[in-house]
Design a protein around this nucleic acid. Structure first.
Lengths: 159, 159
DNA sequence: ATAATAATAGTCAATATTAGTCAAAGAATG
DNA sequence: CATTCTTTGACTAATATTGACTATTATTAT
């Protein structure tokens, strides 16, 4: 723990390389194969590094495009100061989410000034029963949980 | 490697070129082979750019004529009011909705001042692939369409 | 007028160029 | 030793580029 140099694997080196760029820039845009070549690893290891070290929990959002001129862009975002509410809501959701519980969550978000009325309305529309119905109430609850978690993760940061 | 926007693909460059003209004009009228020559691509790539980036969902209508003096004209459409925008977007969605088309729709909502940046990103979170994925790409597109329509209908009377 | 030819744009499928997924193998850790 | 983390590569998916072939319209020749 004390010394920084020791015991760094290649994934750590790639992480450090990218974060050094991000220290001076709001974002970094890479070509996956270039970075893989630079560190002499297979391209999919770049995905591994991104998936384990550049998550939204760490304050990064990632977007990419395939095909000619494709890229991966990692962007730093400013996490909100108080995301305890979000963390506990996400933890409480688990695998499935009923309509009733989802309404409680939206109410909680509103009470904590994390969303306004209009945003609440959009979220409720997104998880509306008729919209996500799958003729299978279990699947509907799973879908509702997934969508809600995705939205809560989005609320972690500003902008 | 931080913010520089080099390395765009040629289709993106052509898109940008045309949209720069459209920023100052209601329409742009081109000769396909001229634009192809300007960017050193085959003529049919102009069709590819138009079909992927100047659709009605994006707020453009395209008309063309073949033969001597032929042309392609791209015109910005001006929808009369917010309800018109929402109605035409809903009508255009149909049964399935790809990720790419959904992003175009959100962009159009933003361009027409129907949603702000934050609302846009909440919507994108709600229809994110990882959120609504069901290990079945057809079902994913169906789910995305349903959710988007639900949200658009909400915006219709939410004001 | 009509037919032939030239001058355009459109379609579609093959190929190229990227990134993503997933599971197995290997390495490190406790 | 068991568990977790890392590394690898085969397979998949998305997007871009290319070119052969087709369709339409204008112009020219008969």
């Amino acid at each position: 723990m004390g010394d920084e140099m020791a015991d760094e694997n290649i994934s750590d080196l790639i992480e450090r390389y990218l974060k050094e760029i991000l220290a001076d820039n709001e974002q970094v845009k890479i070509r996956r194969s270039e970075i893989a070549g630079l560190f002499d690893v297979v391209p999919s290891q770049i995905n591994y590094v991104i998936n384990t070290r550049f998550t939204i929990q760490n304050g990064y959002i990632v977007e990419s495009k395939r095909g000619g001129g494709g890229y991966i862009r990692i962007e730093k975002v400013r996490l909100l100061d108080d995301i305890d509410v979000l963390d506990s809501l996400i933890a409480a959701i688990g695998n499935k989410l009923s309509k009733r519980d989802s309404e409680t969550i939206v109410q909680t978000l509103y009470n904590n000034d994390l969303i306004n009325r209009r945003e609440a309305s959009i979220i409720l529309a997104a998880i509306d029963k008729d919209a996500i119905d799958l003729n299978n109430s279990d699947l509907t609850d799973i879908m509702r949980a997934n969508i809600m978690i995705s939205i809560l993760n989005r609320l972690r940061y500003e902008g």
